[in-house]
């Protein structure tokens, strides 16, 4: 097996793999940079507008909740296809990495919304009450109590989402995008070269491990345990 890799045409596959890796990182980072904020906002809305919340508002809660429940279950491969008219309207093209980023933003924003909400509901309502009793405004409470109190679990939640987004980005190939997924299918699977496919697998595994270690370290630092 070692011989297989020794005999591999590294002058060709090496740069190809690096390119694919960068494309994956690029897609994930750009999509995450956008969806993190959208998801955080939606998650905060879900948490604060629920009954008994700081900004309790049934209409807003049900609207956001309905949207999240509608978008989230759509399998990503179908979402890419279904969003294509919107993608073309918005970005002028329906193919390539940009189109995939667009679909990733949709899928991950609503996923993040749920994860943010789930982490916020575990905050002790007592600390929110304490801040209210001190005369803090609702916005101040959101930014100086709720988010800091949930920061550790949120880091872990976001790490989970980034890893899920690496998974999403692997489907870029179906609309002409690149990345590790495309590399594995086009260079490995379709050419009957499983050892090439495994290169992509190894790259993904290393990336996921590094991210999770980073996320755990960050959360541990914030949670002090």
């Amino acid at each position: 097996m070692i011989d297989t890799y020794r005999n591999l045409d590294w002058d060709y596959y090496g740069p190809e793999l690096i390119d694919a890796l960068w494309e994956t990182i690029h897609m994930v980072m750009v999509a995450f940079a956008i969806s993190a904020w959208i998801g955080l906002t939606l998650g905060l809305l879900l948490y604060t507008t629920r009954a008994g919340g700081l900004l309790a508002n049934a209409a807003v809660f049900w609207t956001v909740n309905f949207l999240v429940n509608t978008i989230r279950p759509i399998p990503f491969i179908i979402l890419i296809a279904a969003l294509q008219p919107v993608t073309i309207q918005l970005l002028g093209t329906g193919i390539g990495n940009t189109a995939v980023i667009h679909a990733m933003v949709w899928a991950s924003s609503f996923g993040i919304a749920r994860i943010v909400e789930q982490n916020l509901v575990t905050i002790d309502p007592g600390v929110v009450e304490a801040a209210r009793a001190m005369g803090a405004s609702r916005l101040r409470i959101i930014f100086t109590v709720i988010l800091p109190e949930a920061f550790g679990p949120l880091i872990l939640g976001f790490t989970f989402v980034i890893i899920a987004m690496i998974d999403m980005s692997a489907l870029a190939g179906i609309v002409g995008g690149g990345g590790l997924g495309n590399f594995a299918i086009v260079e490995g699977y379709q050419r009957f070269r499983p050892e090439v496919t495994w290169l992509a697998v190894a790259a993904v595994i290393v990336m996921v491990h590094l991210l999770q270690i980073l996320g755990n370290l960050g959360a541990r630092k914030v949670l002090r345990r």
Partner: peptide, 29 residues
């Protein structure tokens, strides 16, 4: 409310702040 202090059964301290940060919070407000 800013003229009324409140002490709770479960203390309700901010876990994300140290002791000084907890005491300083109402002053920031």
């Amino acid at each position: 409310r800013s003229r009324i202090g409140m002490v709770f059964q479960q203390f309700n301290l901010f876990q994300s702040r140290n002791v000084a940060g907890n005491v300083a919070y109402p002053l920031k407000v």
